[in-house]
């Protein structure tokens, strides 16, 4: 990682208008996400926070009719809608963790190794072993699963499966991790583990997390963006958002007037 990289924001969104078919779901978004910080997106259901997140690794391409109407998203300084962007490379550098943990119906080892195996550059077995171990350690899962790497990933608990998904994303060597409500399907204890993990991971990774849970946002994030009905209402340091929101709507939302 060199310094010139760090001076540019990790993700930069400029005047983004995003639509599904004719329906505009994001309007005029401007946002800069800094390196090695945790940024939380909060907002009521359907406000567009997930859409925004999916626009960062162009997973939104999968939805028929989804398109950027105007503006652009720059990741690591590169406009990702340009034709010379290879989406597979983009998605390797911008990892993603989903709301519902979704390990593949394969062994634990194969789950972590998947990203490497589909890479165009082949790697040797020992190198692969090293990457799998490092990733699992980084996701704080190694000690729990090291003896049963060849068993099915479905044998793990929900929290473990979600951490496996994080390990899977880390194995690709990403710069940025997108997390789409990673704890929504987990019990409080597992949630805590994940939150700890996020704090540990931000040393190395830029993390963007979508959450419904405002306590979670205060616990893990450095900055928070509040979206409402497709608009970015407020984006600032988490402390400021939760203690001295500038906008009335933000205040109403965080005090639980609507959700």
């Amino acid at each position: 990682m060199n310094n010139s990289d760090d001076q540019k924001p990790a993700i930069e969104v400029e005047d983004l208008h995003f639509a599904y078919g004719e329906k505009e779901v994001l309007r005029n978004i401007n946002l800069k996400i800094r390196h090695r910080e945790v940024t939380a997106f909060i907002g009521p259901s359907g406000c567009g926070k997930s859409t925004l997140l999916h626009a960062f690794n162009r997973l939104s391409d999968l939805v028929p009719g989804a398109r950027i109407k105007s503006g652009c998203v720059r990741v690591l300084g590169k406009d990702i809608s340009e034709p010379d962007v290879d989406t597979t490379q983009l998605r390797k550098k911008v990892g993603m963790v989903f709301q519902k943990y979704n390990p593949f119906p394969k062994s634990i080892y194969e789950n972590v190794a998947f990203g490497i195996r589909v890479d165009a550059n082949r790697r040797g077995r020992s190198e692969l072993d090293g990457i799998v171990e490092r990733s699992l350690r980084r996701a704080a899962l190694w000690d729990e699963v090291k003896d049963r790497l060849d068993t099915s990933a479905f044998g793990l608990s929900g929290g473990q499966q979600q951490r496996l998904c994080i390990a899977r994303a880390i194995a690709n060597g990403p710069k940025i991790l997108l997390m789409d409500e990673p704890c929504a399907a987990l019990d409080p204890l597992s949630t805590l583990r994940i939150e700890q993990l996020i704090t540990e991971l931000k040393v190395d990774y830029t993390i963007v997390i979508v959450t419904h849970n405002m306590n979670q946002a205060t616990r893990v994030s450095d900055r928070t963006a509040f979206l409402y009905m497709g608009d970015l209402v407020e984006y600032d340091e988490t402390m400021k958002i939760f203690q001295r929101p500038r906008e009335e709507r933000t205040r109403a939302y965080i005090s639980g007037l609507f959700s």
Partner: peptide, 13 residues
Amino acid sequence: RTGNPFAAPSRHA
């Protein structure tokens, strides 16, 4: 070289 962090990596690809 290219200034594109997401370029298709190699001839392999």
